[in-house]
Design a protein around this nucleic acid. Structure first.
Lengths: 150, 150
DNA sequence: TCAAGCTTGATGCAATTGCATCTATCGCCT
DNA sequence: AGGCGATAGATGCAATTGCATCAAGCTTGA
C-alpha cells in the first residue's frame, strides 16, 4: 500500500516555502553574528543547552539528543569550544568512558553576547512580521511536523 | 530607536520550531535519497530549475537568484553535474564570459528518479500530517517571512 | 579608443561536514 | 571470572562549504 503517494500541490508548496524560508532566515541570523565578530549559530545551540543545564553540565550524548547534531559533529564542536575556553570537560565518576561538559564563565559571557545579536535577529525576522497569535499558529503547525515517522 | 528589541516568547518559540523542524525534515529527505542511492537535495534543486527552464537553459547567475546558493557553490555544483553528464555547458553568443547551462536527457531522468523518492518524502513528512487548509495556512505564514529586511 | 570599473564565473586554501572505523569502557550473561 | 555485544566518544580521510581573490569579458564615459 501507499505505492505512489504523490504529494499534493499544497504539500509541495508548504514544503518549498519551509525549505526556502528557513534556509534564508538561518543565513540572515548567521550574517548578523558574523558581522558582530561572533561565533556561528551551532556554537550558540550548544552553549544554550549547557547554560540551561547549569553546573551539573551535560554528557555529550545528551547534547546530541537535544540538538540533533551528529555524534562526530558534537565531538569536534566541543573540542573547538574547549579550545576557546567556553566549556570544560570533566571526567565522570561512574562511567570511565564518558565526560561531563560544563559551560565556563567565559562561555556564559559569549552566549550572552551572542544572544544580544541572535535575539535581535529573531525579533526582526520573525517577531516583527507576524502577530503573537500568528506565531502561535505557526508554532503549532510546525509542531505537528516534528517526530517524523520511524 | 529599536535598541533592545528582545524577541517575544512567541517569536522565540516559533523560531525554535522552524529551525528544528526544517533541519529535521531536510535530514529525513536526504536520508531517503541516500537510501535510494540518489544524489543529494542540492542536485535536485538545480535540476528542477533547469528542467523548468527547458531547452533554453539558464545562466549560472540565474540559478543563483532562483536557488539561494552562493556563487562559488553553484560553480562547483555545476562542475559536478557536468562531470556526471546531467547538464551541459554551452557558450553564449552575446556574452563571452558567460555560459548557458542546459539539462541533458540523463539529467531529466535523474531528476525523475529523485522526484519519485523526494516527492514521497514530502507527502509522508508534510502532506500526511496536515490538512490542505492547514498546509495553505502554513505556506501563507511562511510566505510572510520571506524577503527579510535589507 | 581606451582606461576604470563592473559583472560573470572559476579557483586556492582553510574550515567544516560526512562517513567509516577505532579505542575504551560498560553491562550482561554464562 | 571471562567473554560478547552495546555504548561513549575520538579520529583518519574524503567531500563539501566558505572566504578571498582572480581572470576574462563587458560597459561606460572622457
Amino acid at each position: 500500500m501507499n505505492k505512489k503517494a504523490a504529494p499534493s500541490p499544497e504539500a509541495i508548496k508548504a514544503w518549498a516555502r519551509l525549505m526556502r524560508v528557513s534556509r534564508r532566515l538561518v543565513e540572515k541570523a548567521e550574517d548578523a553574528l558574523k558581522e558582530g565578530g561572533l561565533p556561528p549559530l551551532t556554537w550558540y545551540d550548544v552553549l544554550h543547552e549547557l547554560a540551561e543545564a547549569g553546573e551539573g553540565g551535560l554528557r555529550p550524548f545528551q547534547l546530541i539528543e537535544r540538538t540533533l547534531f551528529a555524534q562526530y559533529n558534537i565531538s569536534r564542536l566541543l573540542a573547538r569550544l574547549e579550545a576557546d575556553g567556553l566549556v570544560e570537560k570533566l571526567p565522570v565518576s561512574d562511567d570511565g568512558r564518558g565526560q561531563t561538559i560544563r559551560i565556563t564563565g567565559k562561555g556564559r559571557e559569549t552566549r550572552r553576547l551572542m544572544w544580544a545579536v541572535y535575539g535581535r535577529s529573531i525579533a526582526d525576522l520573525v517577531g516583527a512580521r507576524l502577530s503573537a497569535d500568528e506565531l502561535d499558529t505557526l508554532a503549532g503547525l510546525l509542531g505537528r511536523l516534528r517526530h517524523p515517522p520511524e
